[in-house]
Design a protein around this nucleic acid. Structure first.
Length: 223
DNA sequence: GCGACAG
DNA sequence: ATCTTGTCGC
């Protein structure tokens, strides 16, 4: 059985919610990142009027950060956008693009939450479990939890709290830019995740892997 | 019941 | 995500 066949994507909302609860047990919160040669970034575009979207996986050489591979797919998006169920909408396209990749990355940066999610299984964690890769969630806004103001210097961060639980951190990656929200995806810890994200930022708010994946899928879809 | 709500 | 001009800061 292939990893991507861990479960079906043709689910209703109640089934998706139940699946998240079971998959959340499989998420690893320990740092298992090692010998990074390639770092991946993934993103999908907004679906067009026909429901077709573009999914992209970009592979960067590390530490040069040169793009060494780009894979794009265009498919119809089936699942509706429901806050908390984003992975059921986006993961199918990302996985399709990912299976075409030749240089399998040792770390994947995802545009969305990891465990900073109501059931601790945001897109980054879900993809990490399915692809069995270390992943880091790097979202542009908060889904759940509370966070204090972040210092203005690049590198400043403030923890995301939900009750007594730390879900991640708001991280200032660039001066005069809003912070990004970092959380463990899979097989990473928060400290490592923050270091990696800062290390992958090259003068822009978003880390290079995610930024390039976004650019790669921003062109108009053909279907 | 009310507000919040990744992309 | 998207609707949308000018404008403030480096």
């Amino acid at each position: 059985m292939k990893v991507e066949d861990l479960h079906s994507w043709k689910l209703g909302i109640p089934e998706a919610l139940r699946l998240q609860q079971s998959l959340a047990h499989l998420v690893c919160y320990k740092d298992e990142i090692s010998e990074v040669r390639w770092v991946g970034g993934v993103d999908i575009s907004a679906p067009n009027s026909q429901g077709c979207a573009r999914g992209a996986v970009v592979i960067l050489d590390y530490p040069s950060l040169h793009t060494v591979e780009v894979k794009i797919v265009e498919e119809k998006v089936e699942f509706p956008y429901v806050p908390g169920l984003l992975s059921f909408r986006e993961a199918p396209l990302i996985i399709s693009a990912f299976r075409m990749v030749e240089k399998v990355p040792q770390l994947l940066i995802v545009d969305g939450q990891g465990i900073a999610h109501p059931r601790r299984l945001g897109l980054a964690s879900h993809l990490g479990v399915i692809l069995d890769l270390p992943t880091i969630g790097c979202a542009k806004s908060l889904l759940c939890g509370k966070v204090a103001e972040v210092g203005s210097e690049a590198g400043s961060f403030s923890l995301i709290w939900e009750g007594e639980e730390v879900l991640g951190a708001a991280l200032r990656t660039k001066r005069n830019a809003r912070p990004v929200y970092i959380s463990i995806g899979h097989r990473t810890d928060l400290e490592g995740a923050l270091k990696w994200i800062l290390n992958l930022c090259q003068g822009y708010r978003l880390p290079e892997p995610t930024r390039r994946a976004h650019n790669a899928c921003s062109a108009n879809t053909k279907c």
